Amino acid sequence: MAFKKVSDSQVTMIELMLPSHANFSGKIHGGHVLNLMDQIAFACASKHSGEYCVTASVNRVDFLNPIEVGELLSLKASINYTGRTSMVVGLRVETENIKTGEIKHCNSSYFTMVAKDENGNSTPVPGLILDTEESIRRYARSMRQLKEARIRSDDFLPEHFKINEYLPELESQNAQIDYKS
């Protein structure tokens, strides 16, 4: 299987934010931004793998700053990690105010994409050449995030969940426990 550099599949998308993208409060609708994020993750993963790709998961999307009508939205994507058939695509979303030149970081996110063959089956992807400290850091971070996600998922499976470990912690939360064991 071949290997590719991170730079071989990096993608940038820039789009002017229009009034039709705004929500009821006049800010750009988060759903519109998520749609663009999914598109650029697809483009980046497909460029790396040479295959049609689908979104398997999205790891956390925090909207850090509102996006205004008239700003330029810039989405940057690169492959951070490659598994056998999956890739973690790192995304950074920024806006630029056309009048002032001010740039705001709006969010960063990680999309796990899976390459599919013409029959819809998962298919192997090229590995990643890690040639900078930044690429190694991003790969290692993705490995850790994937490992921690598996552990979290296992801990909360019904057959593994231990209610008594969580009841004391829940008492200090904004919840009323009306549970009888």
Score class of each variant (00 low, 15 high):
A2G: 11
K4D: 05
V6F: 04
S7W: 00
D8C: 09
Q10S: 01
V11A: 05
M13Y: 02
E15C: 01
L16Y: 08
L18P: 06
P19M: 12
P19I: 10
N23H: 05
F24Y: 09
S25E: 12
G31E: 09
G31N: 10
V33D: 03
V33M: 07
N35M: 09
N35P: 02
Q39C: 06
I40L: 00
F42M: 09
A45S: 12
E51V: 03
Y52L: 10
A56T: 03
A56H: 01
A56M: 03
V58W: 07
R60C: 10
R60A: 14
V61A: 07
V61C: 09
I67R: 05
E68L: 12
V69A: 12
L72F: 12
L72M: 13
L75N: 01
I79D: 00
I79R: 08
Y81W: 15
T82V: 12
T82F: 06
S86L: 10
G90D: 06
R92A: 13
E94V: 11
E94W: 06
T95G: 01
T95P: 01
T95A: 01
N97Q: 02
K99Q: 13
K99V: 10
K99Y: 09
T100H: 08
K104W: 01
K104V: 02
C106Y: 03
N107E: 01
Y110I: 03
T112K: 01
V114R: 12
K116T: 10
D117E: 08
N119T: 07
G120K: 08
S122L: 04
S122H: 08
T123R: 06
P124N: 11
P124G: 12
G127L: 06
L130D: 03
D131T: 10
E133H: 02
E134R: 01
E134M: 04
R137M: 13
R138N: 15
R138L: 15
R138A: 15
R138S: 12
Y139F: 15
R141A: 14
R144F: 09
R144E: 15
R144T: 14
Q145V: 08
L146W: 00
E148W: 00
E148K: 09
A149Y: 09
R152N: 13
D154Q: 11
D155G: 00
F156V: 12
E159W: 06
E159H: 13
H160C: 13
F161N: 03
N164Q: 15
P168S: 04
E169Y: 14
E169P: 00
S172Y: 04
N174G: 02
Q176Y: 10
Q176K: 13
D178A: 11
